[in-house]
Structures are given as structure tokens and as C-alpha cells.
Design a protein around this nucleic acid. Structure first.
Length: 145
RNA sequence: CCAGUCGGUCGGAUGGUCGCGCGCUCAAGGCUCGAAAGGGCGAGCGGGAGGAAAGUCCGGGCUCCACGGAGAAACGGUGCCGGGUAACGCCCGGCGGGGGCGACCCCAGGGAAAGUGCCACAGAAAACAGACCACCCCGGAUGCGUCCGGGGCCAGGGUGAAAAGGUGGGGUAAGAGCCCACCGCGGGACCGGCAACGGGACCGGCACGGAAAACCCCACCGGGAGCAAGACCGAAUAGGGACGGCGUGACGGGGCAACCCGUCAGCUCAUUCUCCGAGCGAGCUGUCCGGGUAGGUCGCGCGAGGUGUCCGGCGACGGGCAUCCCAGAUGAAUGACCAUCACGCGGGCGCAAGUCCGCCCUACAGAACCCGGCUUACAGACCGACUGGCGUC
């Protein structure tokens, strides 16, 4: 499981859909789609979408350094345990940890993460249709001119 | 046994499943990035948070910047003495003062006869000596209540943190260091100590209030910024420079000119031809160079190093020998989960040792260039030395 490490990558994912649970907030973004739309359609090579990447964020508001480390490590352990099941290739994810992640029951935490992932995927699916519609409309007039 | 003082150590253990980052080694095949060298995905092994990693309060190393030498002033810091140390505002050993029956603890602890200012409230008076009230004596007046003049200035004056040394005696009109004894205070030859300081013959009738954490004076110390220091590599895009290639057409009109407009060539709008339309119409392009952003590499861990032991020293510490190599991340590794066992708390059974069940799972807290300190936080456990009290022999 690759990690997100650049500030710019985190900012990009923050624009995507999100799902909030008691112990965290999940943000997600479909990166492969972006790359395809950025290139002309002449490149039909069906390159395998890049492996999913996950980043973790815990702000100082959530506690001391020890507590923040523990929040991030528990969330990381959850994701590492079921990464292949929930994370889709071509996507970036960011988990924003909350204080509740310190003592939240581990199995419940796993359930929450699974739920949040599917919720985010659904949200992207519905909103991406409208995105494509807008993109198509934006492309056509440019070609007409 | 109880109460207490000081110093020190540790701060869960074992196992299982799945992982993280670093280093070393291996390489049969596969996948992937790359022009290549090589890297990644793999396997094995090794090691991977603290006593405070924290606060960022001092002192250094290291790096860059500034700077000719010396001195002075200003500013900041430190402040009993001796020692330790690379250095310190730290530590050790003393001294002085204060507290405790004691072990022991606490102390911004230089200078107030260099100067300025301050001493609230209360009080007659707050700093140097007197004025006031009251008191005492003498003389005079008197309506016998007292009043006036002169002298004494000590004791008394609720106060206050602080007010003319205290007690006793002599003395006197009454008093007062006016005189005497003791205590206190000041000076002090000399003695002990490296010193801070301690002791002190003798002398002095006693003067010299506090506060320096108000200013100040004296002595000593002090360039600035910090690993986001600093060094190197360096895209994409835009822009800069050097050299080269192709090109910068014709006519007319306006305008002093720069320039603007129009027409015709020319070029572009995927390709060939024609037409129409739009745009361009003086630049386009190749190679190289330099600055530099994102990003990356180094800095980066052999050190005022750890452990053991011996020697010197009361001690801080110093020295010798042996031995060990011990985190190196950068959206930031050092973990997640489970089981068992100790530890703690509560309850049941048992004379007791113990056993069973349940709970909390055990604090403060996470390296970020590195060291020496200080300060602050901390569940619980252990060790040593010592003090006071009780009991027994």
C-alpha cells in the first residue's frame, strides 16, 4: 500500500467526496480519470490504473503527539488489514483521524472503514456522471470554434 | 514495628498472527522503471524511543553571516568562598543566616559613611534631630480651678514591619550612659583558615534604621542568526544570454514621427485542387550557457560515547586498562490485534498458606543536528544510608 506524502496530493484529495464516521473522516479522489481526461483521446493504451494510495492526517487539535501517533497507527493497521478489499486501483484516499479512534473498538473500526469506503465510491459514481456531462459540453464548443 | 529524612534504580514480562522504516547479505526465474549503470517488488539476518525524548530556560560543539588591533561607553547577564568542568546561571565541598527534638531542609547571600529617590496606613515624629502633648523643678500672680515666665528633654504618648540599647544599682529637685556591673553593640592588636569566615586581649558610653527585587556603584562575562544552519544535483513551464539557419515583400492613404488603415502577394486553419471565411503578417526555429522553482542527495551520528574494573580525591570529578558500536525518520518508521502471567483494586471460600471470579489493564509521555545542565509531569515497584519513638533480648 503506497502512502501519500506530498502536501499537494493531500490538497487534491480533499476536494473529492468524503464520508464521516465517529473515529475518522474519509476523503477520496479518482486520480486515473483525471489523467485520462488530461491527455488527448489519441492515446488508447489501456494502461493499468495505478495502485491505490492512502494518506493519514491527524491535526494537533486531536491531542498530544503520543495520542496522534496512536490514532494514525490504529487507522493504518485497519487499512493494512483490508486494503485489497476496499481500496480501488486508480484512487487516492485520505483518512483524517479523530480522538475517538484512540479507544474505539477495533472490529467496529474495521466495519466503519468498510462502510466509509463504499459510501465514498458511490458518491463518486453519481457525481462523476455529471462531471462527464459537463466535460462533454465543455469540449464540443471548443472544437466547433 | 511505627513515623520520617536523604540518595539511587526500574518504570511491565512471555508467546502468537499480521505489518513499518533502516543497515548488511543473497540471487534461480518473473514483473516493472531506466539509454545504460543500476533501482523497486522478493528472501534471510541484525538492530529500532525516553527518564524525562517534554518546556526550549542557560552553557557548548557545528554551520553561515559580520569583523584590522586595543580601549571606552551603552545594553544584557551573573553576584559569599574554594574546587570541578569544554563551558555554564550547573555540580561538589565549605562559610554565613533562618527552620526542625533530630536525620536534614531552605536562602537573588557583593556595596546603604559615592549619590538621587522611597518607607503606604497609623502615628507628635519615618531619618535626624528637634517641634507637640504630657511630666518635673524654680519664681510670680491667684478668684485656689489654675494661669504666666524661666529651666529640664529622660522615662510615658494608643501607632507601626521599623521609633533615643536592655536589666539592676548609684546619682539627681525630678530624671537621663550622667556614672557603675552584666548582657547587647561598634572598633580591634593578635591567633586559626588558601579563602569566605571564625575566635579574640583590649578600647569606646553607644554612635551608624530599612530597602540595592526603585535607580545606582563595583567586579566578572557576553558579536549575530540558527540544521527550515549550510553544501550539492536539478526537471516541467515561463523568462534571460551567446552563436547559427530561414525570413522580415509590393502599392496606396493618414500622421512631424513612432505607428495606424486598406488592397495584392505570402503563411496557417489534417491531406490534394478551387472558392469562401477567419487569423497571422515579423518573426519562427536549432544548439549551447547561466540563474532558479517543484523535487532529490548530503549535512546525519565514533561521541566532552556506553559498560566493567582498578587507582587518586571527603566529594563533584579526574586518570589507567579491558570491552562494545548502540535509532536515524522527513505527511515523519520504531507498530496493530490477541492470549497467558505477574502487579493493583473489589468480592466469595478458607484458621492460614492459598484459591476462584470480576474490573482497571500500569502513569507522565514520542527522537527530528548533537552534547552538558536546569525546570516541569509521572501509576506503581525496589535498593541503600540515616534520624526520632515504642517494644523484646
Amino acid at each position: 500500500m503506497d502512502r501519500l506524502k506530498k502536501r499537494a496530493e493531500f490538497l487534491a484529495v480533499a476536494k473529492g467526496p468524503r464520508a464521516s464516521r465517529r473515529a475518522f473522516t474519509l476523503q477520496a479522489r479518482r486520480t486515473a480519470a483525471d489523467r485520462r481526461s488530461g491527455q488527448p483521446e489519441a492515446d488508447p493504451a489501456p494502461v493499468a490504473p495505478p495502485a491505490p494510495r492512502v494518506g493519514f492526517t491527524v491535526t494537533k487539535r486531536e491531542g498530544t503527539a503520543v495520542e496522534r501517533n496512536r490514532i494514525r497507527r490504529r487507522l493504518r493497521a485497519v487499512v493494512a488489514g483490508l486494503a485489497a478489499d476496499v481500496a480501488t486501483p486508480g484512487w487516492d484516499y485520505v483518512l483524517v483521524g479523530r480522538r475517538e479512534a484512540l479507544h474505539h473498538d477495533f472490529t467496529a473500526l474495521i466495519d466503519d472503514v468498510v462502510g466509509a469506503f463504499s459510501h465514498v465510491h458511490k458518491a463518486q459514481a453519481s457525481s462523476s456522471r455529471s462531471d462527464k456531462g459537463q466535460g462533454g459540453r465543455g469540449d464540443r464548443p471548443r472544437r466547433d470554434r
